[in-house]
Design a protein around this nucleic acid. Structure first.
Lengths: 336, 336
DNA sequence: CTGTTAGCGCATTCAT
DNA sequence: ATGAATGCGCTAACAG
């Protein structure tokens, strides 16, 4: 294990100069800088992370939870985007398990007390989420991926978030379909009052009413709901078409539901020409030739990291509100 | 930030005694031990991980890669199992990106040089994998999840692995189906020569021949292949049934393919009574009511961690072969 | 059984 | 512009 001292000896300078060459290159004479650089390269020196962390009192590490059973089809991709963005900033990403909110808070406590982590990224936040309170009370840096739908003030600067504008994405898709001659566009959403699901339905509704493709009353007959699984979606789609045989396009709240819809259609009249679109641009959507809406995960990861870094650099003084800490990103419609 | 000194002062002992209470409780008098324990609790002391890591020259952290687009449906669950098992051993799990083998090796180099990580877990290893050579040459501890199919000697002690016995699982499923009166069991696999895919097909073949449910020649007409997507699987299934209308059960190499098969059957004759089984016991399989084969991910994670820890504890001296470092775990058939 | 000393590798004072 | 000292928090080796 080669340390800063070895480099210093090799280059004939003091350890501090080597340190400066790495962290503050400007204040060292170019000649010595190159000398040191050569030694670093020759000895394959890399600063020891633990020592640096101990000295700096900062872990350069963020944490994100992993649930027993992943809810999202895009979680892998989010993780990859996050790791990529973190890597570019020389930050590590560690996982912690989230078996329950209670368990997750235990993890917060352990990871922050041990100085293992500088910040947390939370997903699937719900109304009255105890995690948010805990983190704020313990002055831990964090960002949500996904809006905190139930919160009184969604733009509270003490609860930063990054999210994808599903409503906008669905609206874009509806616009596109209308532009390409579709007249009767149905919608299959999730049952219940999911913030995300409701937001996406609004996108469809916005366009249908705005373009006068449907009246308020008609919206109910033009839409249906299904659990997020293929089978349930098939049934919903069949039901929808029985009610409205004039439908020439169906927008679905997820790729899974879109898959079910497409299969219901195929089982029915064969080549029906009905356009089906989903959400998340998963491998399934691609292989089934479905339209879909792609979340900008790379940009999301970039924004998440930006907010975290700004908050960390701002120090523990509550510099809230100075940064742009509520970011809504537009997704991209994928036409196949 | 409360340190070991604060606890020592509070308890009226030396820092070393506090350290002993935590790491070597046996050598400290019970009375003082409780005294210290009380102080620790009162001050909410937690040892600083970076300091300990620096002192111990060990990171207590393992790394696992995350690919841009996840190949496996069970990766999330593997990660969760791994984090859970690591957590129990007070070990952290960090992610690194694996855009290519070359990139992955760069990550190995960076993470190990910085002392960020003690060991790596590799997935999707293929013949002549350069990563394995690099890790062995640089004396890095690692374990594969999944057998290194192409390797000359799969039981080389310098290449430890943990894997799930897909052949065995598929064979169990075939046995079960025969036991329940199925006579003509088809198989849909992946095209090409995937080690995993071929292994699973062997499980089916073993039982079919062993139970004299098919002759060697028949195996080809009883099986087909499809890419790992619903659409391709539908076509393969249809083709298979045209060739062999007598089939009363289909075993598929994955849940995705099983889904396609089930849909092809539904589109055909309605309630056909044909049993369809997949692999991985994903949410899709459950929602479609498919039989499936569940990988023992918790046990896999446990074995992976065991091997890593044994190797780390053995020190850098090549203690290879002393531990049981090639583990094949039986999966569980799920009947619905 | 407990306290003292020392050092893991680094970066931030302060001198020069 | 560079070097010498100091300490981040912890534990291993010794001394008592």
């Amino acid at each position: 294990m080669v340390s800063i001292k070895d480099v210093a000896r090799d280059a004939g300078v003091s350890p501090q100069t080597v340190s400066n060459c790495i962290n503050n290159p400007d204040i060292v004479k170019p000649a010595t800088r190159e000398l040191v650089a050569a030694s670093i390269k020759r000895l394959k020196y890399t600063p020891n992370a633990s020592a640096r962390r101990l000295r700096m009192q900062r872990s350069n590490t963020i944490a994100i939870g992993i649930a027993p059973t992943s809810r999202s089809q895009v979680y892998d991709r989010l993780l990859h985007a996050l790791v990529t963005e973190a890597d570019a900033r020389n930050i590590r990403v560690t996982l912690y398990k989230t078996d329950s909110h209670q368990d997750e808070i235990r993890q917060f406590a352990a990871l922050s007390a041990q100085g293992d982590v500088d910040a947390f990224i939370l997903t699937d936040t719900a109304h009255g989420d105890p995690r948010i309170n805990w983190l704020n009370e313990h002055r831990q840096t964090f960002v949500l991926f996904g809006r905190p739908w139930g919160l009184d003030d969604m733009y509270d600067p003490s609860v930063p978030w990054v999210d994808v504008d599903g409503r906008h994405g669905i609206a874009d898709m509806a616009q596109y379909l209308i532009l390409h001659g579709r007249k009767h566009i149905g919608f299959i959403g999730w049952p219940g009052l999911s913030g995300t699901g409701n937001d996406r339905r609004m996108g469809w509704q916005d366009v249908m009413l705005g373009a006068r493709m449907a009246t308020e009353d008609e919206l109910d007959t033009l839409s249906d709901t299904a659990e997020d699984e293929i089978f349930s979606a098939q049934i919903a789609c069949t039901r929808l078409l029985e009610r409205r045989p004039d439908i020439d396009a169906i927008i679905c709240v997820s790729d899974t539901i879109a898959t079910g819809a497409r299969l219901a259609l195929a089982a029915g009249s064969g080549d029906d020409g009905i356009a089906v679109s989903g959400f998340d641009d998963t491998a399934t959507a691609e292989s089934m030739g479905l339209n879909s809406i792609a979340q900008p995960l790379t940009e999301s990861a970039r924004e998440l990291m930006r907010i975290i870094q700004e908050r960390l650099d701002a120090g523990p003084d509550l510099q809230n509100g100075v940064d742009d800490c509520h970011v809504l990103l537009p997704p991209k419609i994928i036409i196949r």
